[in-house]
Amino acid sequence: MAPTGDRDLIRRAMLRTHGAEQPESDAATSEPEPASPRKATPAASPYFAWNPELGEPRQPMAQGRRYEPPTRSITLDEAVRGVELQHAKWGPSFVRCDVAADLGRTATSIETLVRSAFGDPGSTSSRATAGPTGRPAQRAIFLDIETTGLGNSPVFLVGMLEYDQGVLTLNQHLARDYSEEPAVVAWSVEALAGADAVLTFNGKSFDVPYLRARAAATGVLWTPPAAHVDLLHMARRCWADALPDCKLQTLERQVCGRRRAEDIPGWAVPDAYHHFVRTGNATHLERILEHNLQDLLTLAELAARLP
């Protein structure tokens, strides 16, 4: 079966126009990333070739896998531009809200890429091809969560990159301490329920069931998202032969050609968050937010680049 249907699947989920024909746009031709040292060349292997230069991940905090608290100390307000939200039922929480234009060059170029891949739902041409329901394209949300541990530990950060009307908007709901988790869960469940499609990486087995379990544990009423697309399985179909693994960071390096400069490793995230709650030092929390943002951007780019 030709994997070229993947992006179509995503688009259908986004537009809810099952069976509607959409013009196929080639990801390689609309490649907006000039800094990429090696482009995805479908000719080399079926879809892609492994680039050894982009090989090993850099893990600055991986020595002995022991979390080391930061030496510098800054407060949350200094570190992150955000506002406090007040949920009517669940109380306060914190959100960082930015449009792609404020998030730097990578974000804007990804926005362009996504727009060219899925068309601009806000434009008149897209409205014209919106399909039999006649509904215009709605919102799609890229989702990635960060948790305070394994098992059923609370979730403290729900990152949502929203694609609406051709614009990418970032919403990162953050629990500043453990008591704000219900509000974070409530806000994100509401947002996800309002979206037409949720796109995740491994979200079928992790992010969405986890959020659902946390909703159950905190008592928030769970509303399942209208459509859920897990990009991991699509990515596996495309790139599993060419890559050693299909981790998001591998794909980010090899497919998108980006590397992260100062990333916090995934295993250190819970300890870093507990450290933040204990001390109020947001140095590493800033990195966690950045890590989450990078994951979301890669997610969006992958969705656009899937053949």
């Binding site: 394994l150 098992g151 609370p154 301490d177 008591s179 507990h274």
Partner: peptide, 15 residues
């Protein structure tokens, strides 16, 4: 654990 308001919350990444 950490006390916030009238509740105690688990405050480490251990299970």
């Amino acid at each position: 654990v950490r006390r916030i308001g009238h509740s105690w919350y688990h405050a480490t990444s251990e299970t």
